[in-house]
Design a binder for these strands. Structure first.
Length: 584
RNA sequence: GCGGUCUUAGUCCAGCUUGGUUAGGACACCAGGUUCCCAACCUGACGACCCGGGUUCAAAUCCCGGAGACCGCACCA
């Protein structure tokens, strides 16, 4: 019974999404293709509004820099990042029944090989281990074909001739890391700073079945926040330290429990539940974002990833989950502490120096004993070789030379005999003004399509057998509906004027004069339009209109001239519906 | 990838067992009428058998293959 109601809501949301143009499966005329969706007019606006909300929070409020890079990425990038090695699954297929299995999972189960070890094994090693342990198909007992890797990145060729491999990026993060040097320069070479990229990513999922939750092409919002690991303090923590985070700890999960603990950001850090201040800060901001798109906090939680669940780059990871009617607890954002993994990898692979220079508060002065070759003396003796000899000498530990002089009266640098008069051993002051290091990264990463689906599901409600999409006003795809009570007697022209005026004010306004007023309200409710303004016969007399609240269906009356200001205040969340006019 | 169920207008469904003239309904949408605040009513218009092949005089209907959806399994770095 519960099952059918779950199906019912999901089906109803999908039906309304198709009918009203929120989203649908792509390529329907060719039979469809799994894992790809098209957003219609309402959906596109809703998705943009959600993404803009995210921008509002992170770009405007926190000061994160936004950038945009390409989807197609040269192979080298994902080789360096570790994706080519890690973004694939070794799979075996049963010869008899054709069933496929994760080879590493079979080894864990039947050969007691740990997942960490199994992950590092080559295909040959896997084959050997399978044969050695006599592992057969768990279903029918058949033998396996040789193991094969299934790469979950889309592969392509860049340019028409060369065999230059390119990948469709499976995340937007690498687009940020590879441009780090320029971004850092733009950020005026100051840490900490963050960069966000919102864009498409591609993952060739084996079986993308869960609608908007798992797509082959989707929109990802990756935020990479760079900071000095020696200065891990978050200067914005004050704003969020009392925000409560519901966390399901890894240790709790190991006990097969789903009990969450509720801790403030402050506590979570104090008790070292979350190890990075910045990570805790972003988790709190992520929670706020979800509240703003309509998910109450009791329907959210953060779940700590277990060591073998973490991505290859991550040190400590949490997933932000939202309770969905259909899919249960569902990930909407991931919070990973990527350390210096990515920048180090790209540094090593590309040869580019991605270190950051940090000036010490007070320069460090050290005295160092050095061997100074006296070229005036060396020249006459070694002639053309003297430059080489000089270089050789200066690399040697002064102590060794000193000891050699004391013992033998000379020092042999290779085949060259160095006498005390050739060099000067002296102490030198060295002033270090700073040092170079690789910044650490904390990454919150949101799935835009998932946020979208979450917003739809939480907005969906039924009132008097009608569907009302209760989007929070700040993300509603259409903000205002304008209706003439009758499409005659000049009410229509008056209403059209009003629509134009509000549109010029920057609102998304829809005009509708077809059908009875009740039908138009119903249509508007389904599209989730928060406010409906109706021009009636009183309007012609006194220049006032009624404003209808989507959620309560109550109405207030206000003068037309006040509308622009009232609407601005309402959509900025500064006033409530009741403050829009006199209740009628 | 596997197994089960399924695929008919914008949406939701009927028809298929037993092949046969013009594939039926509801809602939505559009036009006109009517209507002074919550999917009212009247008239009219538009609009579909998932794709490919086969069987047959004749296929939405039977058979084979494919694609897609849903449920379960597996997968989800």
């Amino acid at each position: 019974m519960e099952e059918t109601s779950k199906l019912g809501k999901f089906t109803a949301i999908n039906e309304i999404a198709r009918r009203r143009g929120f989203f649908w499966n792509s390529y329907e005329i060719y039979g469809g293709a799994g894992g790809f969706v098209a957003y219609g007019p309402l959906g596109t606006r809703l998705k943009q509004n959600i993404e803009n909300k995210l921008r509002d929070i992170f770009v405007k409020q926190v000061g994160i820099l936004e950038m945009e890079s390409s989807v197609i990425t040269p192979g080298k990038v994902f080789e360096a990042s570790g994706h080519v090695a890690n973004f694939k699954e070794p799979m075996v297929e049963c010869i008899k029944c054709n069933k496929r299995f994760r080879a590493d999972h079979l080894l864990e189960e039947h050969a007691k090989i740990s997942s960490a070890t199994a992950e590092k094994m080559s295909l040959d090693e896997i084959k050997f281990a399978i044969d050695e342990n006599g592992i057969r198909c768990p279903d029918c007992g058949g033998n396996f074909n040789p193991p094969q890797q299934f790469l979950t990145m889309f592969v392509t060729t860049i340019g028409p001739y060369a065999g230059a491999t390119g990948y469709g990026r499976p995340e937007a993060a690498q687009g940020i890391f590879v441009e780090f040097n320029r971004l850092f320069a733009v950020a005026r070479e100051k840490l900490p700073f963050g960069v966000i990229q919102i864009g498409h990513a591609l993952r060739n999922e084996i079986s993308p079945r869960q609608g908007l939750i798992r797509l082959r092409e989707f929109t990802i919002c990756d935020l990479e926040f760079f900071f000095d690991p020696e200065k891990p303090c978050c200067h914005l923590l004050k704003d969020v330290e009392n925000e409560v985070l519901p966390i399901l700890l890894g240790e709790t999960r190991l006990k097969n429990s789903e009990e969450t603990i509720k801790v403030t950001v402050h506590e979570a850090l104090d008790r070292k539940i979350v190890r990075s201040e910045w990570q805790a800060f972003f988790m709190a901001m992520a929670k706020r974002l979800l509240v703003e798109i309509g998910v109450p906090e009791e329907k959210q939680r953060f779940i700590e990833k277990l060591p073998w669940e973490k991505a290859h780059y991550s040190s400590q990871s949490f997933d932000q989950e939202v309770l969905l009617d259909r899919y249960g607890w569902t990930e909407v954002s991931g919070h990973a502490y990527r350390t210096d993994y990515d920048l180090s990898s790209h540094m090593k692979a590309s040869g580019a120096d991605m270190r950051v220079f940090k000036e010490y508060d007070t320069p460090v002065e050290t005295e160092q004993v050095i061997v100074k070759p006296l070229m005036a003396k060396l020249g006459p003796v070694f002639k053309k070789e003297s430059a080489k000899v000089g270089e050789l000498i200066s690399k040697v530990d002064p102590q060794i030379i000193r000891v050699a002089f004391e013992k033998h009266g000379y020092y042999m640098a290779g085949n060259y005999k160095i006498l005390p008069e050739h060099v000067e051993i002296c102490s030198q002051k060295i002033v270090e003004r700073g040092k170079r290091f690789i910044p650490h990264v904390v990454e919150p990463s949101f799935g835009s399509d998932r946020l979208f689906y979450v917003a739809l599901e939480y907005a969906y409600s039924i009132k008097d057998d009608r569907v009302v999409m209760k989007f929070p006003p700040c993300i509603a795809p259409t903000q205002i509906g304008v209706y003439p009570l009758m499409s005659k007697d000049g009410l229509d022209t008056k209403a059209l004027e009003l629509q134009k005026r509000l549109t010029r004010e920057g609102f998304t306004v829809e005009y509708d004069e077809t059908g009875s007023i009740g039908r138009r309200y119903a249509r508007a409710d389904e599209a989730g339009i928060p406010l409906g303004i109706t021009v009636d016969y009183d309007t012609l007399r006194d220049e006032t209109v009624t404003i209808r609240d989507r959620d309560s269906w109550r109405q207030v009356r206000s003068p037309i001239k006040d509308l622009p200001q009232l609407m601005h205040l309402y959509f900025q969340g500064k006033i409530n519906f009741e403050n829009l006019g006199k209740l009628v």
